[in-house]
Design a binder for these strands. Sequence first.
DNA 1: AACGGAATGT
DNA 2: ACATTCCGTT
Length: 567
Amino acid sequence: NPDSAGFAFPEWAYKPESSPGSRQIQLWHFILELLRKQEYNDVIAWQGDYGEFVIKDPDEVARLWGARKCKPQMNYDKLSRALRYYYNKRILHKTKGKRFTYKFNFNKLVLVNYPFIDMGSSGRGVPQSAPPVPTGGTHFRFPPSTPSEVLSSSEELRSPGVFSTVARRMARGSVSDCSDGTSTNSELEEAAAADERAIGPDRAFRGLLAPRLPHESLFRFYGGHPTPAGLPRPAPRVHADPLSPFPVSPLPGPGGLLSPALSMMGSHFSFNPEDMKHYLQAHTQSVYNYHLSPRAFLHYPNIVVPQPHRPTPEKPAPHHLQAPPMPLPLSQQQADDAHASPFKFKLQPPPLGRKQREAGSSLAAAASSSNHASSFTGAGPNVGPAVGGAPPKIKVEPVSDLSEEDVEVTDISEEDELNPNSEDEEGDMFPPLPHSRHHHHHLKNGSGISPSAPHPEEDPDDDEEVFKTPATPPPGGGGAFPLMGLKTEPGQAVAPVSPGGTRCIPLKLRFKRRWSEDQRMEADGDREEAEDKKVLGLMLPPAPTQRRASSELQRATAQLSLENAGC
DNA sequence: AACGGAATGT
DNA sequence: ACATTCCGTT
C-alpha cells in the first residue's frame, strides 16, 4: 500500500465537506457550510468576532443537521452537546455571555499550521486577539470560495476567514437532507450562483495562479492575524510563498497541527532528526504534489530533505496548474515509516475506563494501577515529587493530560502566557480546558501530593512553556525556527526514564507519554488510511484543466450529492 | 442556557 | 472517532 504512504494529509482534509456522499459529514463542517450560505443567514450567521457565529434559530439548525444526518430526533440540546465536544478539541469554544454563540478557534490553528509565518519576531507584540472585524459589516463571511480567490490578494491573506475550499462549493447542496424536500436542485444552483456573486470582483486574480486541483478542497488557512482592513500591514512574513501555502489544516487533525518544528512519531513527539526528516519529506512531497512554490520548502538546518521524485520531469514550477498530486513512490524508508509517521493525536482522549467506578472497586484499583505507569504528567521539572507511591488515582483528565494539548505546543507564538488572565475572550484563546485538573481529585493516598497543586504552571496553556524550554537555537541556522534544536540526539535529548526516579522529566519527555494503547494504536496504526486513500483516489484524479475543471467537478459533485439525497 | 458524564450507536 | 441520547447539575 504504497500510496497510503502514511503521512501526507490527514483524512479530514479530503472531506472538508463534501465527499459527495458524505454522510459522514461532521458537525463543524456542516456549520461552516450553513454559515457561508446566505440563505441561512437567519438561521445561523457570523457575528461578532472572527470566527464567532450565532445560531439564531437553534431549532432550525438542529433540524437541518438532523436532516443531514438523517436523525429526525435531533434537537438543539443534542446538537449542542456535539458542539460542546468540540471544546476539547479546540475546534470551537463558547462565547460566554452570548446566547447560542460559539466561536471557531482559528488563530491558534493558523499559527500552528503555518509555522512558516513568522508572526512576529517583531515581537510578541502582535496582539493575540483578533482585531475587531473590519468588515464594516456586522458580519463577515468566510470570504473566498476558491483557492485562487483566496490566494489572490495579500489582503486576503490577512482577512479573517481564511478558509477556503473548493470543496465547499462542491458541498453545495449538502445542506439538503434526505427527507425534507426543502433543498432542491434549484436551491443548489441558486446557492452556487449566489456564492459566485458574493465572491465579487475583488478576486481579480482568480485563476491567476492558483492551481485548482480537486484536492485543493482542503481547508486552508492563510495568514495569521487578521488585520483590520484599514490598516494594511506589511506583507506577512511568510517563509513560504504566500501564494503557495502549504496545505494544512486549520484543525486539529491528525498531522495537521504539528509544526515542522516537531515531529510526531506515533504518539510521541520527537526532536529526532530522523523524524524531522520524515516530516519534512512529507512536507516536501506536498509541495511537489501541490505544485507549490519551491519557497514553500521548509528548511531546517542540518536536515537534508530528499526531494521526492516526480514522475514527470517537470520542475516544481510554482504556478502550475495541474498535475495531480500523487502519491509518489516513497522511498524505502518512507515506506517503512509510513505507519509510524502519520502523526496523529487525539484531541479527545478516550474516556478512561473509569466507569466501573461505582461497581467494582477492586476493578478500579487495578485499573488505576496499571494505567498510570506513565501518568504523571505533572511533574514539572522540579516539582515532581515523584510519587513514590502509587500514582494517585486521580481522574485522569484527558485533555489536561498534556498529550493533547501538546498539539498546541506547537503554537509558537502567542497565547496568553503573558497575561494569564486574559482568559478567553477575544482572540484566540483556548478555552480554558473545561476540566482542567482543578477540582476534585482528592488524593486519597496519604502522600499529600496533590496532583494538581504542585504544578501551578501546569495549566493547560503551559504548553508553550514546554515548548520553549527545550529550545536550542540552531547555531547558524536560519533562526526562523528558534524552536528546535534539531541537533539533539535522541539519547541526550530525551532523558531516559529513570527507573524509579521519575522526577525531572525533561519536558520533551512529557510528550512521550501516552495514555493508552489505544492511543498508540491510533497514532500509528493509521487506520483510516483507508479513508485517506480512498478519498485521495477520488479527489485526486488526473487534474484536467484547471478552471473549468472545477466547475465541472462542482457539477458532478452536486449531482452526487443529490443522489445521496435519500437516506 | 450551558455543561459534561455516561452509555450507546455507526 | 464522532456523534446521539439521556440526564443531572450549575
